[in-house]
Write a protein that binds this DNA or RNA. Structure first.
Lengths: 213, 213
DNA sequence: CGTGCATGTTACTTGCGGTAACACGAGTCT
DNA sequence: AGACTCGTGTTACCGCAAGTAACATGCACG
């Protein structure tokens, strides 16, 4: 039978693919996202064309690589998001999980936000493709949780999606800035962001010099 | 005197530089951020080395190009942010201004978020550099406004910066997603985001199936 | 044995960023 | 006037990375 054959070959190919991905991971984490295919192939102990046979092109490799890390991070976030605790606690835990992840492995994080290399087309208007898939997936995921758990009245689905992407973007941008400047501890950052989401911006009083109008 | 000479030459050089920037602008808007230096030079009616004499390298050209658009956008945003109106109105006006800008010229917007090409180093850890300067500048600007206008108690400066970057990130991510999928009108998006900032997330009730516990 | 077929290689093409070397024109100094 | 400088422009090249073609090898199956 050729089915057993094929599965054997498939297994072998998948194992090989995983090895290649791990090698690529090492190189990308060492040299940054601009690592060359030659370097990755060398790290894996082989030569370029094999990479191309496995992943098509550089974009394919990077997509596969990104998927691993993205899946891992999303799993952590889901755990924090679904924990049996109060809403504020869950929000803070999720923020903290994300920030801890990007703090622990900045290169991974940087790579994930960066797949703007091997993309195709670039024709005209396909905006919204360059923003990392990680952000989109996190946004959709969060939107789903929001919509499942919160009672938002009419138009809830759309509102949840806006909020999902918005909150993820807030987390991302603040984290990016924080990682660069380290102006405060992670816990302080988490609390500040949660306060923002809890409406402290709207609740704060005006300063003396600017009375309303 | 050579001063008058020099100023003449400077004037001429600056005019030339502006012409080159406009040509580059046309090409980048037509071909996307991956436009080649050759293409830009051709559009300007000259050849590569001149571009390099004026801008150093591709990163320099892109930085100069980005600065123009960034300055323009920031001016619009400042106007909306400083308008004599209530806080909620100002926030909505600012969001709307930003979204209108990226809606009107997606390519410009895409380019501004994209200067990950001509960057240097890429050594190890300089995370926080790849995120577009536009986002950073917007974040700092907003932080300043927040800190000037709001009474946030102790630690206000730090809090304002976190919020500035966070809000800008929220606006950016939501705008990026919205521009790609167009799930609703601009006005609806603005209102949803403002609601988020006004604490509606914290105020919303739980859905039936998940009673906290 | 020969026939597939996956895996691996060397060697090449193409295209881009960046640079060196040379050429022309206009104003300046003596 | 002639030499000198200096900004502007060119052609032709280097180095490097993505991607591909063509060839080699090991191994199963008939």
């Amino acid at each position: 039978m050729d089915t057993t054959q094929r599965t054997d070959q498939q297994r072998s190919a998948e194992r090989r693919r995983r090895e290649l991905l791990e090698a690529a991971d090492r190189v990308v984490l060492r040299d940054g996202p601009h690592a060359s295919m030659n370097a990755i192939a060398a790290e894996a102990g082989i030569t370029k064309p094999i990479l191309y046979r496995h992943f098509g092109d550089k974009g394919g490799l990077y997509a596969a690589l990104a998927k691993r890390h993205t899946d891992a991070l999303l799993n952590s976030l889901r755990a924090a998001l679904d924990a049996p605790a109060e809403r504020r606690e869950r929000v803070e835990a999720t923020l903290d999980t994300y920030l801890a992840a990007i703090e622990a492995r900045p290169q991974v994080y940087r790579f994930l936000m960066h797949p703007a290399e091997g993309s195709q087309s670039d024709q005209g208007f396909d905006v919204g493709k360059h923003s990392a898939p990680l952000l989109r997936r996190m946004g959709e995921e969060l939107a789903q949780v929001i919509e499942e758990r919160l009672d938002l009245g009419p138009g809830s689905q759309q509102l949840a999606r806006v909020w999902g992407h918005g909150i993820v973007g807030m987390m991302h941008a603040a984290g990016d800035w924080w990682l660069g400047e380290r102006p405060c501890s992670r816990a302080e950052l988490v609390k500040s962001l949660a306060d923002l989401l809890w409406g402290r911006l709207a609740a704060a009083g005006d300063r003396v010099g600017s009375p309303g109008f």
